[in-house]
Design a binder for these strands. Structure first.
Lengths: 234, 234
DNA sequence: TGAGATGTTGACTGACCAGTCAATCTATTC
DNA sequence: GAATAGATTGACTGGTCAGTCAACATCTCA
């Protein structure tokens, strides 16, 4: 039931990589840029990007209004930065998982686990990324479509590999499967964000298992019966 | 491959129910309220709710600024109205499908078809509903959570029924399955909205089949082999 | 026909807020 | 300790826009 050893180890470190409260202490005082970013996460999550004022971010961070503009060119850039920071980490993890020689279930399992743990580690950040960025089809969304598309393509690559290996049925277009996989996970996070689903530790763990069970179950070649039981025309 | 006869027939009518360009002609001039709503759909889809001005809606509709406030109390109310109009139709369809004595595949197929056809019939409207409402966790999303939750529960009811009938495995919580089903569909629409996937007639039809194939494939009891091949602890 | 209701107009206002900037503080370097 | 660069401050401004309102138009029905 444990996923890829190596990828998971890297992932654990990655989850804690950002945010001032993690780094802090040691060096000469907190990095104000980081403090502002962390404050922005909380404010965006609480009030929404459009509804909040730049002064709210500054207040939350405990810094003067103008300092936000010392580190960021605009309110938009703050959100952009948050999105790119996290998404880059996710892309890197997918790439890493992709190269390892593992069964698909474990590859997809590692990715699902990472995303779910990202939410568990910092729900506000994931809320902001999903709700404020993914959602903004105009303005923001368009800027970051390339990044999102890249994730899709990596996922599709994993599915194709599994199809070549005979683990997944070849009839279901890999791009489509990748989309379905990501869709289930995003809806899961959305359910948590909207408080439609319980968020205990066991719930997170069960969710990881169920995501894989549903998606892989629908993609794997039918067990027992040699060929596909109900073939679908492409 | 054709889904529920009766439900589909009702659905076809429902798709064309709204929008002035459909009704129009006949009676004494166009209903300005409707004209404003239709214009708002186009403007919201093009510029986004936050980025557009009320005057943009009025201009697009070819009416004076003030008239928007004659029919709607606020800019928000325009969006609310669009969301509720369409979502009510969808809820009604799900309820209808729910009562009919059909195999799950056909029930879920009818629902998936309806949503996909809704997008095909009026992509702008679905874009607005998904991008501006469904995903807006603060503001709008919160207002309509009740409505969205109702859809989830109806879907979960269909899944539970299938579990009682022995068509679906009992181990996968029905609420979770419902969420996965809706997640795949929403991600599909999102892919179209962001132009990440082709939008030909065949693409829409194939999508309907694949959604069911993936989700039901993962939920059905393993074919051939009597009991479940790889049981999952709940 | 005319009186009330309802539809339609668009100029105006008051609040709001992103972004600027000049001043002040702190660190570093020679 | 003077000089330079970077960090930090917060009052201010300029533009934007949701919503108001008083006037005008068009129906409806007795």
């Amino acid at each position: 039931m444990n996923a890829s050893r190596t990828a998971s180890d890297g992932a654990a470190k990655r989850l804690a990589a950002t945010s001032a409260r993690d780094a802090a202490a040691g060096s000469k005082g907190p990095d104000k840029r980081r403090v502002i970013l962390d404050a922005a996460v909380r404010v965006f999550a609480r009030q929404g990007f459009h509804a909040c004022r730049v002064s709210d971010i500054a207040d939350e961070a405990g810094v003067a209004y103008g300092l936000v503009y010392h580190y960021f060119a605009s309110k938009d850039e703050v959100l952009d930065t948050l999105f790119l920071e996290r998404w880059d980490v996710m892309l890197e993890l997918i790439r890493e998982v992709d190269t390892e020689p593992l069964p698909v279930r474990e590859k997809l399992g590692a990715i699902a686990s990472f995303i779910i743990d990202s939410y568990r580690h910092d729900p506000d950040l994931m809320k902001v990324i999903i709700v404020e960025v993914t959602r903004a089809a105009n303005s923001f969304g368009n800027t970051h479509i390339g990044t999102i598309r890249e994730a899709y393509e990596l996922l599709a690559g994993i599915v194709e590999q599994a199809q070549r290996d005979g683990q997944f049925k070849p009839e279901i277009e890999a791009q489509f499967a990748a989309m379905a996989f990501y869709g289930v996970i995003e809806q899961l996070l959305t359910g948590w964000i909207f408080d439609l689903r319980p968020q205990g530790d066991e719930d997170f763990e069960r969710a990881k298992r169920l995501v894989i069970e549903i998606v892989c179950g629908g993609l794997e070649v039918a067990p027992g019966a040699g060929a596909a039981a109900a073939p679908v025309s492409n």
